[in-house]
């Protein structure tokens, strides 16, 4: 009981600190110097319509690279953690009811649609809201649907790790090309900016976003995969 009271006191004081932060907060009238730069110079410098996508991929490309690595790490460590714990082996997917006819046909019909939508999202991430992460998540939800519908099914490990590693290595290569060909690491001007607003514009942004999409999708699927397989061995 004492712990709850102490936590309450601490959280209350933290609330005061946040409260003071909130009270002192005055929304700016105009964009600050960084935001103004992004607002005005994104089209000429990167050729992308979606400013947030431009920031994510080129301006703060290192962050995104770091972030993709976060997912890569999580997938690897989840596999490590679950590999270590040998659980009760009661056969594969046992104890779950075989999915009904309706579910299977529905899944078979829905999966391509979801995949298509995911690809659409990350292909023109630089034009409309959305991008690599959202697209990847959608792809993963497709894989998830398949897993739920047919728990016994297993994706081939080879494919998943190849997609994941391939997109990762290619992403880093683009970055290194940026270093030699264009202004700096992860600079998107290694490809022509193209005309503003079309699919193949904004230099390497769509390519990078596609790679991110694939990589995120593959990683989420492998996380789900390793969770699913946890009870196999």
């Amino acid at each position: 009981m004492v712990r709850a009271f102490v936590t309450l006191v601490f959280v209350a004081i933290l609330g005061l600190a946040f409260g003071r932060l909130a009270l002192d907060y005055v929304p700016d009238a105009a964009l600050n110097q960084t935001a103004v730069h992004y607002a005005e110079l994104t089209p000429p410098e990167t050729g992308a319509q979606n400013v947030v996508a431009a920031i994510i991929v080129t301006y703060r490309g290192l962050d995104t690279l770091g972030e993709v690595t976060v997912l890569f790490l999580t997938a690897a460590i989840v596999a490590l953690v679950l590999a270590q714990t040998s659980g009760p082996t009661k056969g594969r997917g046992s104890g779950l009811l075989p999915s009904g006819e309706l579910l299977q046909t529905g899944t078979r019909m829905l999966t391509p649609l979801i995949l298509l939508f995911g690809i659409y999202v990350f292909v023109n991430g630089h034009l409309t809201p959305g991008g690599g992460f959202q697209g990847g998540a959608i792809l993963a939800s497709a894989a998830l649907l398949l897993l739920l519908a047919d728990p016994v099914r297993r994706f081939s490990h080879r494919l998943l790790s190849w997609v994941e590693s391939g997109s990762g290595v290619f992403y880093v290569l683009i970055g290194v090309f940026g270093l030699f060909l264009a202004g700096g690491f992860l600079d998107n001007r290694i490809l022509p900016l193209g005309d503003f607003g079309s699919i193949f514009s904004a230099g390497a942004i769509p390519l990078i976003y596609a790679l991110i999409g694939l990589k995120v999708g593959a990683e989420f699927s492998s996380i789900l995969e390793s969770l699913e397989e946890a009870e196999d061995h």
Binding site: D28, T34, R60, D63, L71, L73, V81
Partner: peptide, 25 residues
């Protein structure tokens, strides 16, 4: 201001990463 949105995007994914790791743990 687009910058906080870019930060949040990264933060959400990192949040997911850490949550997934903690779940596995």
């Amino acid at each position: 201001d687009p910058v906080p949105q870019a930060l949040v995007l990264t933060a959400i994914v990192i949040g997911l990463g850490v949550t997934a790791l903690m779940l596995a743990y």
